[in-house]
């Protein structure tokens, strides 16, 4: 159970979700140890009152990370770095020899994509390595993550909508594809809560937000939060993909890939009923989550309010 774990070891603790897992874990009074590959990361980790341990997943240099484990039985391990780079097999081997049993791995619902994404077979192989291990594992597969400042998805959209006097947003294939964005705090909660339930051992959970909404409605809700009425322009995915292909060929460091356009046209909703039943998962609505993010962005900025 979560209260039995005094120490939490985290790999991927400096990313958007990872840093919030570190913060929440420290906030629960746990001793938190985080794999760190730079002095900049060390500073960030120490700022959250956690302990950085030097190492680097690239090249399987886990350094002294697992040597720091004092009481394996009262230690929880959380992996929240990408499972798409082929590191997992090495991590699982080191975990097994460390004596830690309980481990939570954060994967992604993008493993369900029907597109020929190069990382998909790596991710599936990584999940398989976890599933065939001797660990008490749980895999959490979040869909699009948003919420709080610094999220790569919604904050950009909020800032864009906020700045423009007239909001014109392109909608791939009429924005009919279903999305189910999950608020990062709900994701962090379910990752830590999974450690509290034995029923979650040897199970994988798909995690999305409460609502499954079309991309069109998602754009509308974000715009409404900023009290703007957007003009939505339909762009067929084939046209957009051709444009982006051309852009990628003629640009040195393209910021947009064809794959991202195709992903926007794909349904990304997931079935969260197992998490609701097993883990008492109660995610917030997208409207509440985006409103909260908007509040924080406004509070943290120099925008004047009434």
């Amino acid at each position: 159970m979560l209260d039995e774990f005094e120490d939490i070891f985290i790999i991927g603790g400096t990313g958007f979700t990872g840093a919030r897992i570190v913060k929440a874990s420290v906030g629960l009074g746990k001793n938190v140890f985080v794999l760190s590959r730079s002095s900049e990361s060390n500073k960030k980790i120490r700022g959250l009152n956690a302990v950085p341990i030097s190492g680097n997943l690239d090249g399987n240099d886990l350094g002294a990370f697992f040597d720091e484990v004092k009481e394996p039985k009262s230690t929880l391990f959380i992996y929240t770095a990408s499972m798409g780079f082929g590191h997992i097999e090495g991590v699982v081997r080191r975990l097994e020899s460390s004596g830690i049993k309980r481990a939570i791995f954060t994967s992604t619902s993008s493993i369900y994509t029907s597109l020929p994404v190069s990382s998909k077979p790596i991710r599936l192989k990584a999940e398989q390595a976890v599933m065939s291990s001797s660990l008490d594992w749980t895999i959490i597969r979040p869909t699009m993550i948003y919420g709080d400042m610094g999220d790569r998805n919604m904050e950009r959209l909020i800032n864009l909508v906020n700045k423009l006097p007239i909001v014109v947003l392109p909608l791939i294939d009429n924005g009919a594809a279903l999305q189910q964005p999950v608020h990062v705090d709900d994701l962090v909660s379910v990752i830590l809560t999974a450690a509290d339930f034995d029923i979650a051992i040897s199970k994988a959970y798909d995690i999305g937000g409460r609502d499954s909404i079309t991309l069109k409605n998602l754009f509308k809700q974000v715009s409404e939060t900023a009290r703007k009425k957007p003009i939505l322009v339909n762009v067929p995915s084939r046209t957009a993909a051709s444009f982006v292909r051309l852009y990628a060929k003629t640009t040195k460091n393209p910021k947009l890939k064809e794959e991202q356009i195709n992903r926007l046209a794909e349904n990304k909703n997931v079935d969260i009923s197992n998490a609701i039943n097993d883990l008492n998962y109660q995610p917030r609505s997208f409207y509440d989550g985006i409103k909260e993010e908007f509040q924080k962005i406004t509070l943290n900025s120099n925008i004047k309010f009434k």
Binding site: D3, A24, L28, G29, K30, T193
Partner: peptide, 9 residues
Amino acid sequence: RRSEELLGA
């Protein structure tokens, strides 16, 4: 008070 009571919103 249990740890998980402090999680989430």
